[in-house]
Design a protein around this nucleic acid. Structure first.
Length: 466
RNA sequence: GGUGCCAUCGCCAAGUGGUAAGGCCGCAGCCUGCAAAGCUGCUAUCCCCAGUUCGAAUCUGGGUGGCACCUCCA
């Protein structure tokens, strides 16, 4: 297994901290709004990583947090005249439902910030005791970046005057403009939590460091966990700050490997709240099957920036359909469960820093080759069994082709319409049998008017929604 | 201003020193009553310039053009 470490900026052989095990933590969503395509991309990328690692025999413990305390959540709760939990519950539920539609497996652990305040208090105290954090008279607690000689080693930044001036000031009492809040005092009487440092809210960066130590971390290795991941925008300042906290509070480094996925852009522009061009996942799911979106979003290498557009999405959809058509051809056959040359090649491709393009080209080559053989006379018993094993492996490792292939092509057609179409197909087949092609063509026109296409095969006439 | 990434066929996209994968679209065939699906064949020398090398899309330098982070953000 090779993984590109985005901190070292090179592809490295993956060697876990403990033989056969992988501990992975990914920064999850802040649940104050519906998930957008970027959340989907990130969740899909790490879903794929977990599947590949497991296929390679690693015992993976996968954690992805839910940030359920944050200024934006508070703001929304106040606007809606409700408490934060009704906001966070609602969007957490929506997030889960949408990820399910994309075929994203649930993580093993899903820690929430509000449930881990004690762990955060403990880490703050350790940082204060060791001189890496200080409290102000306002009741805030800041991480003292000047106390960490390795600060900025993750993002390889330099702190010049320009940057210092550009940083948004939240307090005049900070020793250094780069210092970031571990605990923010809140005095306006809105939503606060009690802590040994006064009433307030935790800083955003703190939760990940604290929850990793609480739920996931090794205590005796030079790194807390094997892999830490998230969107590329999190490298700085979020991950830089997490790394600093963990390093200073525990004496060991946070993660051995860092993985950052690229952005999703819309029409060449970064999707963001401030640009007003967010694309909600729920809207995309109204138009497209979750598996099509999965296939599309996963179809480009995870580190590349991804430019979302419907033309490319349609092309991806067609490519996925090729897989489903082969499944239709072999429907109902049992696989032999042995690894095949194909499954080995597929796993090898994905083991190279998740080379999805290589993987997809292998799948297409396999599909074409099987179709070609099936087009010739013969039963091809062994090939069929082996192909079923290949398809099962594709489902397992990529999550592609998981639906019933006949139903897949008929999604969105109601039972009544299906019945009508089937009746017309029967009538047309009778006309064909009687060589009344004029009538059969007329019937086909009528069938096509339902927005479907039909295909005559040796096994019978099938139809698909266009 | 600081830091970093990228530039491969009409479109999407691998390859990162040994002579350009794959998909979509298009064209020509096979198959089919006709279609659809499937199959076969055809379509690039890798932004520009200079250099290193027996050999570069792949390395170095310069240029041009995109983009991102530095502020909440997957």
């Amino acid at each position: 297994m090779y993984i590109y470490n985005s901190v070292k900026k090179e592809k490295l052989k993956f060697e876990p901290l403990q033989e056969g095990k992988v501990k992975l933590y990914v920064c999850g969503p802040t649940v104050y709004d519906d998930a957008h395509l970027g959340h989907a991309k990130s969740a899909l990328v790490f879903d794929l990583l977990v599947r590949v690692l497991r296929a390679k025999g690693y015992k993976v413990t996968y954690a992805r947090n839910i940030t359920d305390i944050d200024d934006k959540i508070v703001k929304k709760a106040i606007e809606n005249g409700t408490d934060i939990q009704s906001i966070t519950d609602r969007y957490t539920e929506a997030f889960h439902a949408e990820m399910d539609k994309l075929g994203v497996m649930r993580p093993d652990l899903e820690p929430k910030a509000t449930k881990n305040l004690e762990a955060m208090f403990g880490m703050i105290q350790k940082l204060i005791d060791s001189g890496h954090a200080y409290a102000t008279k306002d009741g805030d607690v800041y991480f003292d970046t000047s106390s960490d000689s390795e600060y900025l080693s993750l993002s390889k930044r330099t702190q010049d005057e320009d940057e210092r001036q550009n940083r948004v000031e939240s307090s005049q009492l900070k020793k250094n403009p780069a210092d970031f809040a571990l605990w923010k005092s809140v005095k306006d009487g809105s939503i606060t939590f009690k802590s040994p440092f006064g009433k307030g809210r935790p800083g955003w960066h703190l939760e990940c460091s604290a929850m990793i130590e609480e739920h996931l971390a090794y205590k005796e290795t030079p790194y807390s966990i094997d892999i830490h991941g998230g969107g590329a925008d999190l490298l700085f300042p979020h991950h830089e700050n997490e790394a600093a906290q963990t390093r200073c509070a525990t004496g060991h480094n946070l993660a051995k490997y860092w993985i950052h996925n690229g952005f999703v852009n819309i029409d060449g522009e970064k999707m963001s709240k401030s640009l007003g061009n967010s694309f909600f996942l729920k809207d995309a799911l109204k138009e497209y099957n979750g598996e099509v979106l999965r296939f599309y979003l996963l179809g480009t290498h995870y580190r590349s920036n991804f430019n979302f557009n419907t033309q490319d999405l349609e092309a991806s959809k067609k490519r996925l359909e090729k897989l489903y058509r082969l499944k239709k051809r072999l429907f109902g056959l049992a696989p032999n469960s042995d690894a095949t040359p194909f499954t080995e090649a597929l796993l090898e491709a994905l083991s190279d820093d998740l080379n999805i393009s290589k993987a997809l080209s292998l799948i297409d080559a396999m599909i074409t080759q099987v179709n070609e053989t099936l087009d010739t006379a013969g039963k091809h018993k062994q090939l069929k069994k082996e192909t079923m094993a290949n398809l099962a492996f594709i489902e397992e490792i990529l999550g592609f082709g998981v639906q019933n292939p006949f139903e897949y092509f008929q999604i969105g057609v109601d039972a009544q319409t299906k019945e009508k179409i089937n009746t017309l197909i029967r009538q047309r087949n009778e006309a064909k049998k009687a060589k009344d092609f004029e009538l059969s063509d007329k019937l086909r026109e009528e069938i096509l008017s339902y927005g479907v296409q039909i295909m005559d095969t040796p096994q019978g006439t099938f139809w698909e929604k266009v």
